[in-house]
Amino acid sequence: MQPTLNAAVSVTELGVDFGNFKAVNQVSFSVAPGEIFGFLGANGAGKTTTIRVLCGLLIPTRGTVTVAGIPYLSEESADRIKEKVGYMSQKFTLYNDLTVAENLNFTASLRKLERTYYLKRKKELFDFITFDKPESTMVKDLPGGMKQQVSLAASMLHNPEIIFLDEPTAGVTSAAREKFWSLIKSLAKNGKTIFVTSHYMDEVEQCDRIALMRSGELIALDSPKGLKESTFPHPLYELTPKRKIPYSEIEALRSPDYFDSFQAYGLRFHASPRTAQSWNEFLMRYSEDFDSQIIQPTLEDVFIRLVEGQNR
């Protein structure tokens, strides 16, 4: 795959090794400017490693990487990339024992922002995140959602073109997550490219495109709709047991005789028949045991099918 012209991020056959361990292998994709690009994968799939490379924090072992038009070739180019991107890591990257103002002042000094520009940006960003507490509030005293928004503001002080968010909503309330995603969408609308990883499938649905990683490799890349359609070409059924079904029978249903995919969802099952004929055979045999209804697959179904299902 050749680097895509005018892409915000372009990655070709990226590989990152830690000793003999291939954390990322043969990964290629590109992200368009203004796109919200989701990065999904189980823990240890290589998401954070990839993000760290794209932010200039980790030197790739193999492949070519271009971020904001800058090829990542050396430490020097890493510095140029760092000027163009904002990074918010899993841990919010704020000092708990400093005030909000002290944290932002420090970030501004790290980014060498000119004083008047910094103050202007701070005001814009406080308005953007609707920060209504005193700047002298200690970060440790902020609620999780607010801390996360201040962290986002800190990562955007230098007005980056691309913002990398590594599990930005981990551990915050659903209301705070919702607000955070409205901020993300608003940023994208204003031309910022957003590269985000998350464990929350409902959030990732809001991405323009999603890349799925498994064991350091990219296994799927499409829009949420495209991913669902390609993963579940046949209708997806939700099966509700009418009686207590022994485990051995459930295991038998997992065999490829009837279904491509048969996954437990609480007390129910999501099943994708192999063919129309296999579905009819299933109904003839088990209609007394299960109620069934067609459902629309969610990204969670896709994730389980592609990432978790393959690991079983």
Binding site: R52, G56, K82, Y87, S89, K91, T93, L94, T107
Partner: peptide
Amino acid sequence: ETGTFEMLVSAPT
């Protein structure tokens, strides 16, 4: 340990 090192090195320092 606290993860703020990532923030330090994510700036072109």
